[in-house]
Structure formats: structure tokens, C-alpha cells
Amino acid sequence: MSTIRFTIGSDLKDAALVGQSVHAVCRHMGLSDDVIYGVELCVVEGVTNAIKHAYKFGTGHEVSITLSVTSGQVEVEIVDYGLPMPEDRVNALRQGSTVLDFDENDRANLPEGGMGLQIMHLTMDQVDYLTDGVVNRLHMVKHITPQPETT
């Protein structure tokens, strides 16, 4: 298993940096484009949520991201120490929501927000969120088909 941990301050510019870093690590590990895109997207969504909702865009707070890759799965844990995610959002993350079940012809009611949790729910094979009120952990797993070894 290969594991790498990133720690950033709660700055949106660093969310992009983490996304690009995760992308590079997954590319180095020989993962498929679909897995790389999906994992990068979910990491950026999770880190952005931590900065936006847990820390309310306040800077200087810690967000840590741990990425582990084995032959069978990619595992991501995003930890923050801000406000815990409300229960309805946790339920949407775990069970999915109807935010993307829109009528494409009903322009006025298209969703402008709230899509990030559903994107994580749809993209990853396991998504969970745990908090003790101090430490918040977003845990995501993506199953992968073992890739041929690269030289």
C-alpha cells in the first residue's frame, strides 16, 4: 500500500494544489483516467466543503488529506477541525439526494448548489462522515481494477 498525506491551510487556492497533487499521485500509480478524475474531483469537493462550511472561509485552519492506494482500492480521508456537517447533509452524502434529479427543460429549477455531496456519493463506492464534535472525518473509498505494472 502507498500512502501520502497532505496538510494545507484553509485556503481555496490550496484546495486546487491538493487536487493537482492527488491527480499526479494517482497518475504515477498507473490508475485509469476515470478513477483519477473521480478521485481528484471528490478530494476537491471534500476540501472545498471543509473550507466553505466547516471553517466558513476562515483562513489559517488545518485541513489534512490522506490518500492510500492499494491494488484494489483508493482510500481518501479528509480531516478538519471546524463546524461538523449538519445531519441532513451527512444523510445526503451517505444515502444520496435528489439534487440531480432535475427536469432538464425546467431551467428555473436547475440546481446551482448542493451538487458536491451528490457527486461524491455517485463517484465513490463508499462515502462516510464521522465527527466527535472536534475532529471531522470524511472517508471515501473507490474500488479499482488492478492496473498492469509500469516500468
Binding site: 487536487g19 481528484e40 474531483l41 476537491v44 469537493e45 472545498t48 431551467r107 428555473a108 436547475l110 440546481p111 446551482e112 448548489g113 451538487m115 458536491g116 457527486i119
Partner: peptide, 16 residues
């Protein structure tokens, strides 16, 4: 090469 849900939301907001 990358767009997240907030970028997508911005485009939807413009369309609306």
C-alpha cells in the same frame, strides 16, 4: 482540464 460543482453551479446560474 478540471471543473468542480461550484464552477458548474456558476454556469447554471448564468443560464438561469
Amino acid at each position: 482540464s478540471f471543473i468542480d460543482s461550484s464552477g458548474l453551479g456558476a454556469l447554471v446560474a448564468v443560464l438561469k
